[in-house]
Lab assay of single mutants.
Amino acid sequence: QAPETKIVDKSRVACDGGEGALGHPRVWLQIPEDTGWVECPYCDCKYVLKGSKADAL
């Protein structure tokens, strides 16, 4: 199944896999201003900063 994409309001987000005990260790991710998105290294969930150029795609 394809990784999930989430639109977020802040450039710093936490990801834990979203499945409680079945998820992964919580990691904090920083969305770079130049790209407007970041992917979780564990679950490949893509976080897109709302209003960024990546959000316009």
Rank of each mutant, 00 (worst) to 15 (best):
6 K>W: 09
7 I>G: 01
40 C>H: 08
57 L>I: 12
42 Y>H: 07
9 D>Y: 14
10 K>R: 11
55 D>I: 01
36 G>C: 02
55 D>E: 08
53 K>F: 08
35 T>R: 06
20 G>R: 04
26 R>N: 01
53 K>L: 11
3 P>G: 12
1 Q>G: 12
4 E>A: 14
37 W>K: 03
11 S>K: 09
33 E>R: 10
48 V>M: 06
15 C>F: 00
17 G>L: 01
21 A>P: 12
12 R>I: 14
27 V>P: 02
39 E>S: 13
16 D>M: 07
10 K>Q: 11
21 A>C: 00
8 V>M: 02
25 P>F: 10
25 P>Y: 07
7 I>D: 02
29 L>D: 00
21 A>D: 10
28 W>L: 03
14 A>V: 08
45 C>L: 15
4 E>Q: 15
36 G>T: 03
6 K>I: 14
35 T>K: 09
20 G>T: 05
21 A>S: 10
29 L>E: 00
15 C>M: 00
26 R>V: 07
47 Y>N: 07
7 I>W: 05
22 L>F: 12
33 E>V: 10
29 L>H: 02
29 L>T: 02
17 G>D: 05
44 D>S: 15
35 T>L: 12
13 V>A: 01
8 V>W: 05
37 W>A: 04
20 G>A: 09
8 V>H: 03
18 G>L: 07
52 S>T: 05
6 K>F: 11
34 D>A: 09
50 K>S: 09
29 L>M: 04
23 G>S: 14
56 A>H: 14
8 V>Q: 02
10 K>C: 11
51 G>S: 04
32 P>Y: 05
4 E>P: 14
23 G>L: 07
52 S>E: 08
11 S>A: 12
39 E>D: 09
48 V>P: 10
16 D>R: 07
46 K>V: 14
47 Y>R: 01
14 A>N: 02
34 D>Y: 07
9 D>R: 09
25 P>I: 12
39 E>G: 10
55 D>V: 00
12 R>C: 14
29 L>Y: 05
55 D>H: 01
5 T>E: 05
33 E>M: 09
48 V>A: 02
45 C>R: 15
57 L>R: 08
18 G>V: 05
11 S>Q: 09
12 R>N: 09
55 D>Y: 00
41 P>S: 05
1 Q>F: 13
42 Y>F: 12
14 A>D: 04
2 A>C: 15
12 R>M: 11
34 D>E: 11
33 E>F: 11
17 G>R: 01
51 G>D: 07
4 E>D: 13
14 A>Y: 14
3 P>F: 13
3 P>Q: 13
37 W>M: 07
37 W>G: 05
31 I>F: 02
38 V>F: 01
36 G>R: 02
18 G>Y: 06
9 D>V: 11
13 V>W: 08
41 P>I: 05
4 E>S: 15
16 D>E: 13
5 T>Y: 15
51 G>V: 04
47 Y>Q: 04
49 L>G: 12
48 V>I: 13
40 C>S: 07
29 L>F: 03
3 P>I: 11
7 I>P: 03
39 E>A: 13
14 A>F: 14
42 Y>N: 06
35 T>F: 05
54 A>D: 06
18 G>Q: 08
56 A>C: 13
5 T>V: 15
43 C>R: 00
49 L>T: 13
35 T>Q: 09
43 C>T: 01
48 V>H: 04
27 V>W: 03
8 V>N: 02
19 E>P: 14
16 D>W: 08
12 R>S: 09
13 V>K: 02
21 A>Q: 10
46 K>I: 14
39 E>P: 01
34 D>M: 06
34 D>K: 06
42 Y>W: 10
13 V>E: 03
56 A>V: 14
36 G>W: 03
31 I>V: 01
43 C>A: 00
7 I>L: 11
3 P>A: 11
46 K>L: 09
12 R>K: 07
32 P>L: 07
5 T>R: 05
23 G>E: 06
6 K>P: 03
50 K>L: 06
30 Q>A: 07
18 G>W: 06
51 G>Q: 04
26 R>D: 00
57 L>K: 06
38 V>D: 01
6 K>V: 15
28 W>Q: 00
49 L>R: 08
13 V>G: 02
54 A>Y: 04
8 V>R: 03
22 L>Q: 10
4 E>H: 15
9 D>F: 14
2 A>Q: 13
24 H>I: 03
30 Q>Y: 13
7 I>Q: 03
8 V>Y: 04
3 P>C: 15
21 A>N: 11
34 D>Q: 09
25 P>N: 06
19 E>G: 14
12 R>F: 13
30 Q>L: 13
10 K>W: 10
42 Y>V: 12
20 G>Y: 04
48 V>E: 07
2 A>R: 14
2 A>M: 14
22 L>M: 14
21 A>K: 10
20 G>E: 05
48 V>T: 01
54 A>H: 07
46 K>A: 01
16 D>Q: 09
14 A>G: 04
27 V>E: 00
56 A>D: 12
20 G>S: 06
25 P>M: 07
20 G>H: 05
1 Q>P: 11
42 Y>R: 12
6 K>Y: 11
34 D>T: 06
12 R>L: 14
22 L>K: 13
46 K>E: 08
32 P>Q: 04
39 E>Y: 15
48 V>K: 03
47 Y>K: 02
30 Q>K: 08
53 K>E: 10
57 L>S: 14
53 K>V: 12
45 C>K: 15
11 S>N: 10
56 A>T: 14
36 G>L: 02
8 V>C: 06
31 I>R: 03
47 Y>E: 11
26 R>S: 01
4 E>I: 15
19 E>Y: 11
41 P>N: 03
25 P>E: 10
45 C>P: 00
39 E>M: 14
9 D>L: 13
30 Q>F: 13
1 Q>M: 15
33 E>K: 10
39 E>L: 14
2 A>V: 11
51 G>A: 06
21 A>V: 11
10 K>A: 09
42 Y>S: 09
45 C>F: 15
45 C>V: 15
47 Y>A: 04
8 V>T: 06
19 E>F: 09
10 K>I: 10
7 I>V: 11
16 D>N: 05
23 G>H: 09
26 R>L: 10
